[in-house]
Amino acid sequence: HNLTITQGKLFFHYNPKLCLSEIHKMEEVSGTKGRQERNDIALKTNGDQASCENELLKFSYIRTSFDKILLRWEPYWPPDFRDLLGFMLFYKEAPYQNVTEFDGQDACGSNSWTVVDIDPPLRSNDPKSQNHPGWLMRGLKPWTQYAIFVKTLVTFSDERRTYGAKSDIIYVQTDATNPSVPLDPISVSNSSSQIILKWKPPSDPNGNITHYLVFWERQAEDSELFELDYCLKGLKLPSRTWSPPFESEDSQKHNQSEYEDSAGECCSCPKTDSQILKELEESSFRKTFEDYLHNVVFVPRKTSSGTGAEDPRPSRKRRSLGDVGNVTVAVPTVAAFPNTSSTSVPTSPEEHRPFEKVVNKESLVISGLRHFTGYRIELQACNQDTPEERCSVAAYVSARTMPEAKADDIVGPVTHEIFENNVVHLMWQEPKEPNGLIVLYEVSYRRYGDEELHLCVSRKHFALERGCRLRGLSPGNYSVRIRATSLAGNGSWTEPTYFYVTDYLDVPSNIA
Rank of each mutant, 00 (worst) to 15 (best):
S203F: 12
D204V: 14
D204T: 02
P205V: 00
P205M: 14
N208S: 08
N208D: 14
T210Q: 14
H211D: 01
L213R: 15
L213H: 05
F215V: 11
W216S: 02
W216F: 12
E217K: 13
A220I: 11
E221G: 14
S223A: 08
E224R: 08
E224G: 10
E224H: 12
E224N: 12
L225Q: 11
F226A: 05
F226G: 04
E227V: 08
D229Q: 14
Y230E: 02
C231S: 01
C231H: 01
L232N: 14
L232S: 09
L232F: 12
G234D: 09
G234Y: 06
L235Y: 06
K236G: 12
L237Q: 03
P238H: 04
S239F: 15
T241D: 05
W242T: 11
S243G: 08
P245L: 12
P245E: 10
F246Q: 12
E247K: 09
S251H: 14
S251T: 10
S251K: 14
S251Q: 11
S251F: 06
Q252I: 08
S257L: 12
S257G: 04
D261N: 10
D261M: 04
D261A: 12
S262W: 06
A263V: 12
G264C: 04
E265M: 11
E265W: 12
C266M: 03
C266T: 07
C269I: 08
P270Y: 06
P270A: 12
P270L: 03
T272H: 13
T272P: 08
T272V: 12
D273I: 14
D273C: 02
S274A: 15
Q275H: 06
Q275R: 12
Q275G: 08
Q275N: 11
L277N: 14
L277V: 02
L277Q: 02
K278V: 12
K278P: 08
K278R: 06
K278W: 10
L280T: 11
L280P: 15
L280V: 12
E281F: 14
E281Q: 06
E282S: 09
E282T: 09
S283W: 04
S283R: 15
S283Q: 06
S284C: 06
F285N: 10
F285E: 05
F285V: 10
R286E: 10
R286M: 10
K287D: 03
T288L: 11
F289W: 05
F289Y: 03
D291R: 10
Y292W: 04
L293V: 11
L293G: 02
N295L: 05
V296A: 13
V299R: 14
R301G: 01
R301S: 11
K302Y: 14
K302R: 13
K302M: 13
S304Q: 14
G306N: 13
G306P: 11
T307Y: 14
A309D: 15
A309M: 09
A309Q: 10
E310P: 05
D311T: 10
P312D: 15
R313C: 14
P314Y: 15
K317G: 06
R318I: 15
S320M: 05
S320L: 08
S320I: 10
L321C: 08
G322I: 05
G322W: 13
G322S: 11
D323R: 14
D323Q: 15
V324W: 04
N326A: 06
V327Y: 07
V327A: 11
V327T: 11
A330V: 12
P332V: 06
T333G: 15
A335H: 09
A335I: 15
A335Q: 13
A336C: 14
P338C: 06
N339I: 10
T340Q: 06
S341I: 08
S342Q: 03
T343F: 07
T343I: 10
S344T: 13
V345Y: 12
V345G: 11
V345W: 10
P346K: 07
T347E: 13
P349D: 09
E351D: 12
E351Y: 02
R353K: 10
P354D: 12
P354T: 11
P354E: 05
E356Y: 09
E356N: 13
E356G: 09
K357R: 09
V359T: 09
V359R: 10
N360W: 14
N360M: 09
K361R: 03
K361C: 12
E362S: 09
S363Y: 07
L364S: 11
G368K: 02
G368R: 11
G368H: 04
G368D: 05
L369R: 02
L369A: 04
F372A: 09
T373S: 11
G374A: 14
G374W: 07
Y375D: 00
Y375C: 02
R376P: 00
I377A: 14
I377D: 00
I377F: 06
E378W: 07
L379S: 02
L379W: 03
Q380A: 04
Q380L: 12
A381R: 02
C382F: 01
N383A: 10
N383H: 05
N383F: 03
Q384V: 15
D385C: 09
D385Y: 07
D385W: 12
T386V: 10
E388D: 12
E388G: 15
R390C: 10
S392G: 01
V393T: 11
V393P: 00
A395P: 03
V397G: 04
S398H: 11
S398R: 05
A399M: 13
A399D: 02
R400I: 09
R400L: 04
T401R: 00
T401E: 00
T401P: 04
M402G: 01
P403D: 09
A405S: 07
K406F: 03
A407F: 10
A407R: 11
D408V: 02
D409F: 14
I410A: 13
I410S: 10
P413M: 15
P413T: 00
V414C: 02
V414A: 07
V414W: 01
V414D: 00
T415A: 06
H416S: 12
H416R: 03
E417H: 04
I418A: 12
N421H: 06
N422K: 15
V423L: 02
H425V: 14
H425W: 02
M427H: 15
M427L: 09
W428S: 15
Q429F: 13
E430L: 03
P431H: 01
E433Q: 07
E433Y: 04
E433C: 03
N435F: 01
N435E: 01
G436E: 03
I438W: 05
I438E: 02
I438H: 02
I438A: 06
I438S: 04
I438G: 01
I438T: 13
V439S: 06
V439L: 11
V439R: 05
L440R: 05
L440M: 13
Y441M: 01
Y441S: 01
E442G: 08
S444D: 04
Y445V: 10
Y445H: 14
Y445R: 02
Y445A: 15
R446W: 07
R447M: 05
Y448A: 05
E452N: 06
C456F: 02
C456S: 02
V457Q: 04
V457A: 04
S458P: 03
S458A: 10
R459S: 11
K460R: 09
K460S: 11
H461Q: 07
F462P: 02
F462E: 02
F462C: 02
L464T: 15
L464N: 12
E465F: 10
E465A: 07
E465Q: 13
E465R: 04
C468R: 03
R469W: 09
R469F: 15
R469N: 11
L470T: 02
G472W: 05
G472A: 12
L473P: 02
L473G: 00
S474Q: 10
P475G: 06
N477W: 09
Y478S: 00
Y478K: 01
Y478D: 15
S479M: 05
V480Y: 07
V480M: 09
R481M: 11
R481E: 14
I482E: 00
A484P: 05
A484S: 04
L487E: 06
L487S: 11
L487Q: 05
G489L: 03
G489Y: 08
G491W: 00
W493A: 00
W493T: 03
T494K: 04
T494D: 00
E495C: 03
E495M: 03
P496I: 06
P496R: 05
P496A: 02
T497W: 13
T497F: 01
T497V: 12
Y498I: 14
Y498P: 05
Y498C: 06
F499Y: 02
F499W: 02
Y500G: 07
V501W: 02
V501I: 06
T502F: 06
T502W: 13
D503N: 07
D503A: 05
Y504I: 09
Y504A: 07
V507T: 07
S509C: 02
N510R: 07
I511F: 04
